[in-house]
């Protein structure tokens, strides 16, 4: 049934900045502001109306939220002051946490697993490892292929001392505290996301 508000209300409450979705007046500025706009299945404005319309599957299974480059164009132009970038990030996260997002969606996989895993494993980004993980995510063969495609660039980076030849970096000194902090934050976050 359309416009069943239970999904919308859950999003308003439990998705980051989700309550702002109520405020959209469907002007379309966000869609026109987005650098990857044409690649979105639903523009932010449409996503918001779909949320309000109770179209849970359409929203959460859409790849749209994963097209955000975090350029913040929409946020500064929205006439209603919706923090659209954050709302879209929140919806992406929501879709991921609730298990709707396609785990093989490239950005989902990169953002939720590879990047986050990379930073929490040591406390800082290990660029080389990050890149390798990204290339080899689909297995060795395609990883080598991707790596080869970018080999000139990588070589350039290495030669200009902008890529670490040793991919594994050390942990930060306070890593134990850092990890405990993250764990606590994740625990609180999980509670919040569950609507507790």
């Amino acid at each position: 049934m359309a416009y069943d508000l239970s999904f919308a209300q859950d999003v308003y409450k439990n998705s980051e900045m989700g309550h702002w979705i109520k405020m959209c007046k469907q002007c379309g500025v966000c869609a026109g502001s987005c650098p990857l706009g044409p690649h979105w299945e639903y523009s932010p404005r449409q996503l918001f109306q779909l949320v309000r319309g109770g179209k849970k599957e359409e929203v959460l299974k859409s790849s749209s939220m994963w097209m955000c480059t975090s350029c913040y164009n929409c946020i500064v132009r929205c006439p209603r002051g919706l923090p659209i970038t954050h709302i879209v990030h929140g919806l992406a996260r929501y879709a991921s946490v609730k298990g709707y997002a396609d785990p093989d969606q490239v950005t989902n996989r990169f953002a939720t697993k590879i990047f986050w895993g990379n930073i929490v494993s040591t406390g800082r980004v290990g660029e080389a490892l990050l890149t390798m993980r990204l290339y080899f995510v689909d297995g060795l063969a395609s990883g080598i292929k991707r790596g080869l495609e970018m080999k000139d660039s990588a070589l350039g980076m290495l030669m200009t001392k902008r890529l670490n030849p040793i991919p594994i970096r050390g942990k930060i000194k306070g890593y134990a505290g850092f990890t405990a902090m993250i764990a606590k934050a994740q625990e609180l976050e999980a509670k919040r996301e569950a609507g507790a």
Partner: peptide, 22 residues
């Protein structure tokens, strides 16, 4: 639609209106 932005064609100076038809 509320247009997102206006660009300008550097040669003709025609304004280009960019947005989404809602």
């Amino acid at each position: 639609s509320k247009p997102a932005r206006i660009d300008e064609d550097p040669v003709s100076k025609d304004p280009i209106v960019i947005g989404e038809n809602t």
